[in-house]
Design a protein around this nucleic acid. Structure first.
Lengths: 221, 221
DNA sequence: GACTATTTAAAACGTATGTTTTATACTTTA
DNA sequence: TAAAGTATAAAACATACGTTTTAAATAGTC
């Protein structure tokens, strides 16, 4: 069996995949080396052999997924923004942003898993925060801030960043609610579908940004 | 040493306090009985003696804090709303709501801790969700939905709930960011103070709700 | 003061963890 | 083919966990 391009045997990849799944579900401490190696169908010592230890495997799992998912989301949003060019209304921008932002996080199983992984990181950080900010948050925030300022020239840089943050927080919260209370269907409080939530977030946020643009010279839909 | 009113010895209370702190910081699985009893300055077996086990102690920790914090927040918001009565603008309502909502969660150490505890619950639920919904979410959501509909009669019930959710998600996200990236000060992305964030959220959300009230008959500030 | 129930203390049990070690197969190179 | 390097396997190690058991001490009651 030959090694593939970058130092990866089958076992190595299987361990990364197993880690991605198990770390997301049970957290770092909740996942044992034995679970990992069992799911990867390999020997117990393989974790230490290939990665040096459980911790290094964990870092690699996050770094890999972060790159993949981040790039995918960025290029998705970037493409639509550049395609539409200057004829882009606020509602359209927020809609494509919301959908492009959410889609990789819920469409494929890997996205949902990563969301949960980030949740663990928020409580028990083991991955360097600076790296997370630089590679995951900053690119998309800059991309969207730029696009938003084009559509709403009146917005200051600061306010643009805060508005994007407001939208992102609503989207993330919506995804969370959708996941956590998925089984509690009979509740009025949480019974909205994710799609319905996104529609509202776009409407809510467009109205907000329009209202905040002092001169009100933002084109109506 | 006499027992106090409700089946609580000193050791019992010290264990609850220790649990509140340790479970928040390290999660359920990350907190050992030995840590708990050491922090409570009592014997290892006391957890099993007083609560039956680590799990029952955990449930009691959450239930106690949930009652205390929930009641405090509700009465705080309720008081201001009824005090102001009918002469309450949208901005005022959202401001008092934001501050009353956030204050118990950040002012006292116990609030921050509970936030983190809820974070653990989202990832690894051990407390009945129905109970959490009924006692923690529904009361405040109903209270605010009612108040909002008074100020904005045009809003449908559904939209009112969604708007409150939007505000809450921004507030919670803001608190989270403040906590998680507290040490990463030099970042443009996250360098806003919590107070600044709240101001923005109020401005953003007022504008949103104004814009969504179709007839535009919501009193200006 | 003696008896009983309650509370604290310490040691022990069984299990699971991450890692290391030792041994065996497989692949590559000479 | 023989030697060297790589990969898998299984067992062993030291530690930590939640809980149970056993023993001592303290409080309240007659």
């Amino acid at each position: 069996m030959t090694k593939d391009v970058e130092n990866g045997s089958d076992v190595r990849h299987r361990l990364l995949d197993a880690g991605e799944e198990l770390f997301a579900d049970f957290g770092y401490d909740g996942t044992s080396t034995r679970q990992l190696t069992q799911k990867a169908s390999c020997n117990l010592a393989a974790v230490n052999y290939y990665f040096g230890g459980k911790y290094e495997l964990y870092l690699e799992v996050i770094a890999r997924k972060m790159r993949y998912l981040g790039d995918r989301r960025i290029e998705k949003i970037d493409k639509i923004i550049t395609d539409k060019g200057n004829r882009l209304t606020l509602e359209e921008l927020l809609t494509v942003f919301a959908e492009s932002f959410v889609e990789p996080l819920v469409e494929e199983a890997g996205g949902r898993r990563f969301m949960k992984l980030v949740g663990w990181e928020m409580l028990n950080p083991k991955f360097p925060k600076q790296k997370f900010l630089e590679e995951m948050i900053r690119p998309i925030l800059q991309l969207m801030t730029g696009a938003l300022k084009k559509v709403c020239p009146d917005l200051s840089e600061e306010k643009a960043v805060l508005c994007i943050t407001s939208i992102v927080s609503q989207l993330l919260h919506g995804i969370q609610m959708d996941r956590v209370f998925a089984e509690v269907k009979d509740e009025i409080l949480v019974s909205f579908s994710l799609q319905r939530r996104i529609e509202h977030i776009v409407e809510f946020s467009s109205a907000a940004i329009r209202g905040m643009s002092s001169k009100g010279n933002v084109a109506e839909k």
